[in-house]
Design a protein around this nucleic acid. Sequence first.
DNA 1: AAGGTTTTCAACCGCACTAGG
DNA 2: CCCTAGTGCGGTTGAAAACCT
Length: 268
Amino acid sequence: MESKREEKRGKSGNFSEMVRAPCCEKMGLKKGPWTAEEDQVLVAYIQQHGHENWRALPKRAGLLRCGKSCRLRWTNYLRPDIKRGNFTKEEEEAIIKLHEMLGNRWSAIAARLPGRTDNEIKNVWHTHLKKRVKPNQTVQESKRRSRSDVEATRSGAKAIDFQAFQAATRPKLESPTPLPVSLEQSYSEISSSVTISSNNKRGETNSTGIKEEVVVSSAHQFSDIDQNFWLDDSFASFCSSSNKDDDGIDFWLQVFMEAGHLEELPEI
DNA sequence: AAGGTTTTCAACCGCACTAGG
DNA sequence: CCCTAGTGCGGTTGAAAACCT
């Protein structure tokens, strides 16, 4: 059956007008649901050779799929670390809270829910959780930075007002902060504490779920952070670093605030 | 049981970014 | 600096399943 999508594509099917033809448009490449055989081939190939080059993978593996399709199938379904089955109440609560903080940044939310994919989370949000959210939260959501804003920040196009940030943080910095550690160590400890706490979800996790664990665990780690982190340009570097800012700074600001290092969220 | 409607979720599309030539 | 390929992400679609009348 010729879908509306095909129809739509047909209308704009003048490839010279397009940046690049959709990868699956190429002759002979299969689309649609994956068969068990295809799954097997893909899994076997990746287990043996890895997936350094998605573009080349299907040809090498002998699959009549485009690389993009293979990547999607692997990341959303075949990856061994994917947790199948229904979302727990804790996971749902965590998604709601993370969505409150991060907006529609599904990959960032997924990064904090081990074993869950962005696609899965997105689906759960649209099918179940969206309905639960209070109306005023949708307003908040619309105010949240769009992806392009985040990307712009990441690429340096939109500068962060760190003076404002530091002004907001200073009152909290008067208290003595012992045990200076290197900044880089601090970063990694924060990150790993998040990962570990998320991975080690205990049975008694309460309704606030993962986020709370993250905050508690991060707050614990913060006591070891060099005080200069809060005062000099280190935090600025932290936020604007393309590697460290993949998930956006909103999350960290929230974490810092809840850890008691910020009175309120600064205007950034 | 049959049909219509709604929900779910895997998969696709296209945009945006980065890296490398 | 520009161009292209490769990749990641969020939005959207539509077939299948579930539910309702």
